[in-house]
Amino acid sequence: METLLPELLRSLVSGLLMGMVFALVALGLTVIFGVMDIVNFAHGEFLMIGMYTTLVTAPFLGVDPTLTLPLAGVVGAALGLACYFGVVQFLLRGPMVAQLLGTFGLMLVLRNVALLFMGSEPRSVHKGWLVGQSWLVGPGVVLESTKLAAAVLSIVSFVAVWWLIRRTKTGMALTATSLDKEGARYVGISTERMNGLSWAIGGASVAIAGGLLVNFWPVDPNVGLLFTMIAFATVALGGFGSIRGAFLAGILIGLIVSLPTVWDAFIRFAGLGDFSIHSFKYTFVYIIYFLIMVIRPQGLFGWKQ
């Protein structure tokens, strides 16, 4: 029991924190999805660019990585706007295939532009207020400040986006657009602008997630795909377009991803050999996406906003 309990606690804590980061990554996707029915394959690449923004600008500006987060947000928003008005708005006129193809092309472009400028080496942030800080909060349970900060900022972002959508006039217009495009246009809302806005919000939130993530996750040009898939799974689990759902689903996925560690500890503890399912941890994400879509397409919580 000595080894199992701390392992369980450790996984729970790290799963919870990671889950909030996953939720933040998925937030942008679910906002975009709520407003328009489109799948953005380049979502993880937005995250990657947010990661690089923090990685590059912090030493360049001589400030702490944490302080570059607003910049990452601005870059993400600008990128979102550029992608929407430069590419996506044209894709919306075509069939679904065009959207898949187009955002896949976008993904290739972003990924390889990064490769061109940053090279393929994984890089990480080594210096900063948060880096290397940690507290022992229980027997064997370590709380890393990087992850804690990411989780806290994730909650802040969720509240901010929720407030923006529920409490501001612009947010109402956004909701109106998502519920009824024709109707929104009829009452004088520019749906084009609303679509653009959703991409700006989406881009900003995922880029901020990237800026937080890079403190404890090395970045390379190919890092995006895993997070795109995680974000898809999160959004599917929480119900497409649901903000509340994305938050809970993110946490759930964080816990699921950390569970194999517990399982492995149990196997070792019980002396059942060294069969490890650790390398399957992301496989579970795919399996969950598949099962949820087939069994409960409205999402685990069944909320449609």
């Binding site: 075509g94 065009a98 092309g105 290739l108 990924r111 061109l116």
Partner: peptide, 21 residues
Amino acid sequence: LVGLNLVIYGGIIMLIAAVQP
């Protein structure tokens, strides 16, 4: 220029998707 080829390739895919699906 490793990557530029894929940038161009991605650009072409985007263009086709937007212009003639």
